[in-house]
Write a protein that binds this DNA or RNA. Structure first.
Lengths: 198, 198
DNA sequence: AATTAACTGACGACCGTTCGTGAGTCGAAG
DNA sequence: CTTCGACTCACGAACGGTCGTCAGTTAATT
């Protein structure tokens, strides 16, 4: 019960202020307890952090899976575009993702290995899902003659670019980047770039 | 003399551990002095940080300018590709850029406004330079019928995507992203996508 | 009676910062 | 050539705070 509230508060501050910039008293205050009481649920700051990290990883992979399941009937073009839209709305509404991002880029140094393992697991999962998407599209003759692995890499790069814009300009600024980048990307991969509507 | 060494050391730690994760004693130790001596040159941690930030901003803009000047005779395709290569080699060899990046993404909260001003200045300069590049290319009929502003945005997004990969996978991982992303990007903007060799 | 979760109190370590001091440099005055 | 004062730079000592952590206690629940 209270452990969940602690993890929520911790995630919020870790996401907005980083690991070093967040103190246990700050977390405790937000929950409404004293900082020493955190030790009733976690063995220390690192333990709390790693549990938050673990929760977030599972959440992220789960989100991605259900999202792709829902889009299985759509066209590739629509699926990809929806993934971009989804990225932005998730960033706007979920602290999970902000936390996940920040720790992907700049984890606390003394926990680097553990964080990296989690990231690697997530990235591999993500890559696998996208790859199957593009393989199918190539079989359906939708795409230019490219290796599906390369298209996957480029699409993830596009998502990363939008993500960066989210981090440092928020949703309104990311919006300005999406359309130009998306159009050029789609032009770059689609066999017929015009007149197939979205 | 010693102020320069302090700023160098500070930049290194700010870049690798963030503002909150860096202590003055750590910086002093690297220089070979005591932390109190830093106050002979700077009025405090914030002052030191802001001076490092300022140096870095100037360096970044200067670098970009000279780089573009050197490339003025090359074709657009080669120019853009060289800018990507340059991004990676600069990341590999210069601490300036690592510092700059980290503080762009996650500045210390109480200095947010000042950092943001610097970033805005840099981004505006960058956008201006790229824009003139693409405007000229459109006049030369090299590109598809797109607004130069949109191409600029998409190219900066591409650079950002590569930058992200640099941050969290280093140069070797970024290399894997560059070629697929670059080819698709160029296919997406160039009027004739084949046979103009680079 | 046993377990749990919150509390109070205190710990040493480190943080950024201030103050006063002393050693070194340099140019001008004697 | 020496002496003096001003200036620069690094120092030790110490400040009030905050950090993460540990130990022991209390009150409520099972």
């Amino acid at each position: 019960m209270s452990a969940e509230k602690i993890k929520e508060a911790a995630m919020h501050y870790f996401a907005t202020q980083g690991y070093e910039g967040t103190s246990l008293s700050q977390i405790a205050e937000k929950v409404g307890i004293k900082k020493q009481s955190i030790y009733s649920h976690f063995s220390g700051k690192d333990d709390l952090f790693l549990q938050v990290l673990d929760n977030t990883l599972q959440q992220e992979i789960h989100d991605l899976n259900t999202k792709l399941k829902h889009l299985r009937t759509s066209s590739l073009k629509e699926t990809l575009y929806q993934l971009i839209e989804d990225l932005m709305s998730r960033y706007e509404h979920s602290e999970h993702m902000k936390f996940w991002l920040r720790m992907s880029y700049y984890p606390p140094m003394h926990l680097y290995e553990k964080v990296n393992d989690a990231i690697y697991q997530h990235d591999a999962e993500e890559r696998k899902l996208f790859l199957s998407l593009f393989k199918k599209a190539i079989d359906d003759n939708v795409l230019k003659n490219r290796k599906p692995e390369h298209v996957t890499i480029a699409f993830i790069a596009l998502l990363n670019a939008i993500t960066v814009e989210l981090v440092y300009g928020g949703v309104e600024r990311a919006r300005e980047v999406v359309n130009p980048s998306w159009e050029i990307f789609w032009d770059g991969i689609a066999r017929y770039s015009e007149g197939d509507g979205i």
